[in-house]
Design a protein around this nucleic acid. Sequence first.
DNA 1: AGCTTACGACAACACCATTGACGTGTCATG
DNA 2: CATGACACGTCAATGGTGTTGTCGTAAGCT
Lengths: 234, 234
Amino acid sequence: MVERVVPEERRQRRRPTKQGAVLSERLIVETALRLVAQHGAEALSVRRLGAALGADPSALYRYFRNTDALLLALADELIGRAQEGWRPTGDWRADLRAIGLRIHASYQSNPQAALLAAHRTTGRVHETRAVETILGILRSAGFPDPLAVRVYHAFVDQALAFAAQDAAALALPAAAQEADAEVWHQAYGRLPADTHPNVAATFPLLAADMRGSGYPFALELLLDAIAARLPAAR
Amino acid sequence: MVERVVPEERRQRRRPTKQGAVLSERLIVETALRLVAQHGAEALSVRRLGAALGADPSALYRYFRNTDALLLALADELIGRAQEGWRPTGDWRADLRAIGLRIHASYQSNPQAALLAAHRTTGRVHETRAVETILGILRSAGFPDPLAVRVYHAFVDQALAFAAQDAAALALPAAAQEADAEVWHQAYGRLPADTHPNVAATFPLLAADMRGSGYPFALELLLDAIAARLPAAR
DNA sequence: AGCTTACGACAACACCATTGACGTGTCATG
DNA sequence: CATGACACGTCAATGGTGTTGTCGTAAGCT
């Protein structure tokens, strides 16, 4: 097969499609995100995306070598949106907290796409910038390189894992979402104290706490532990 | 469409297929798990499963209303297998670590099914038993109820989130898996020191560390932080 | 022994990603 | 301003997917 993809920056000719659309990597990514947001993850197919763009499906292969490459571009776009407008404060702990919460929030804003994208390594610009930033925060805070790398890994994986996990809940149909919450109260609210004493004793607390995401507290705990491993400065 | 599925317990006639196999829910689930284990996640299709069973693909629809129902059955089977044989030691930290790693490991053993399971609250016996156990460990370790509940939430969500995250990576088509690994060397190995000094400085460490899961270290950090919040005993 | 019907098989449908071939509109060159 | 090269949108085809309407037959009841 001949390589059909021309890198975006080297693209010169832009011929409109029969329906008048002028394609670009940007337009394709944005249309794909819109498609997923409006009609769910399963609505994202080359054929449907082509239709939404007003182009033949195969035209997409002039921009992405396959659907995997497109998916990576979507993932990178989400990472990029998470970083928009953020500036480091110089306080490593505050900065890490902000980045973690921003990644989480960005993925929640498009749960369907987040589910597709959260577990990929893109190697694209937004991602490499985020990696560079986080590593910079840790190294200039005084973590020696081997520790900085391990901490980076745990921090990033946890942010992405929670983001995907919470996105999955949001991605459920609204009806199924409420039904799930109901089932939770039904099943756990009625567990008898003789077989499940600990659940029974803490049920009101549990029910209240499980409403929200576990991420903010888990992040705080992670930051606690990281701080404890920071070699005493001075 | 007519409902084709007859519940397993009410099944009476067992007609062999042309190739002589006698189908059952058990046989189908076990064959499916074997198929995935031997030939990878992408080998699991209705057609291939039918072929592996020695039956027409459409015969499966006499046992499962669709592939989602089949995958749920696979997931349920895995949950059952995972909990076998674990006993608490009385050391809260060792017990939590063991539970976390067990959940993680069992999901890795069949990523495809794990992806479905990790995002759903079943409220069924295996799940409620796990909740009861973890809460019991925390409460008898001396955590006051409100803290025990928050810690429980963070711990469980972390385990499930990482399990799903790492399962997702394993469930990718082999090609995408290799692509992700390649990206680390291609994209991150070539980032110039003037734009990405921190990545450039730590690249060998990074490439080595990112090969494995971030969970074991993230779990250890979480346990560190939890221990630090345990009210001094005595 | 005969009847009912469960269940396996067949064939078809609608969708999917991907690719080779083609021709036209766009741009760089002169 | 004309021209030639070729980028890129289009077409058509391939081989995959899950799913379903229909049918015959053999299993198991009476």
